[in-house]
C-alpha cells in the first residue's frame, strides 16, 4: 500500500503518465549516460508503472541521469522519462528528513566539478 502511494506521488509530481509508453526503447537508445546506469530510462518508466520503486530509490542510476532531456525530446509518445527520474530522486531526498541546506552554505558547495543535476537537486533541497 505504501508502495502504491509512493507510485502515485511520483507520477503526480512528475506529471508523467507511464501508461503512454509503448516500449520502443528510443529513450534508452538515445541516452548518453546509458552505460553508467544500472536501470536504464525505459526500465525506469516500466518499474514506476508496475510500482517496483524500491530498487530505483536505492540505485545509483538516479544520480547518473544528466537531465539532458534527450529522452524527453525524442520519445514518440511524449512520456518524458527524465521527469520521472527526477521525481523518484525527489522522493529519496524528501524521505531523508531534516538535512535541508542553509541558504548560506549553497554557494560554498557549488564548484566547477559539480554536475548540473546536483545543483538543481541542492536547490530543491533548500526549497523544502
Amino acid at each position: 500500500m505504501e508502495n502504491k502511494n509512493l507510485r502515485e506521488e511520483i507520477i503526480r509530481r512528475s506529471g508523467v503518465n507511464p501508461l503512454k509508453c509503448m516500449r520502443c526503447g528510443k529513450c534508452s537508445g538515445t541516452c548518453p549516460a546509458y552505460d553508467e546506469m544500472e536501470y536504464h530510462p525505459h526500465q525506469f518508466v516500466y518499474m514506476v508503472e508496475t510500482g517496483d520503486i524500491e530498487p530505483l530509490m536505492n540505485s545509483k542510476s538516479l544520480y547518473k541521469c544528466l537531465t539532458c532531456f534527450a529522452c524527453v525530446d525524442r520519445c514518440p509518445r511524449g512520456v518524458e522519462p527524465a521527469k520521472l527520474i527526477e521525481s523518484v530522486r525527489l522522493s529519496v531526498i524528501r524521505q531523508q528528513g531534516n538535512n535541508h541546506l542553509n541558504t548560506d552554505t549553497i554557494p560554498d558547495i557549488i564548484d566547477e566539478e559539480m554536475p548540473q543535476q546536483a545543483i538543481v537537486t541542492a536547490l530543491r533541497k533548500y526549497n523544502k
Binding site: 526503447g25 537508445g29 538515445t30 536504464h40 525505459h42 534527450a70
Partner: peptide, 23 residues
C-alpha cells in the same frame, strides 16, 4: 528497440540504439 541517434562521421553513420531484449 529503437534507434536513438544517427551521427554521420567520416563516410560512415554511427547508429546508437537500444536492444531491449539484451538490455
Amino acid at each position: 528497440g529503437m534507434v536513438g541517434k544517427v551521427m554521420p562521421e567520416g563516410d560512415q553513420l554511427k547508429v546508437r540504439a537500444s536492444d531491449l531484449l539484451a538490455n
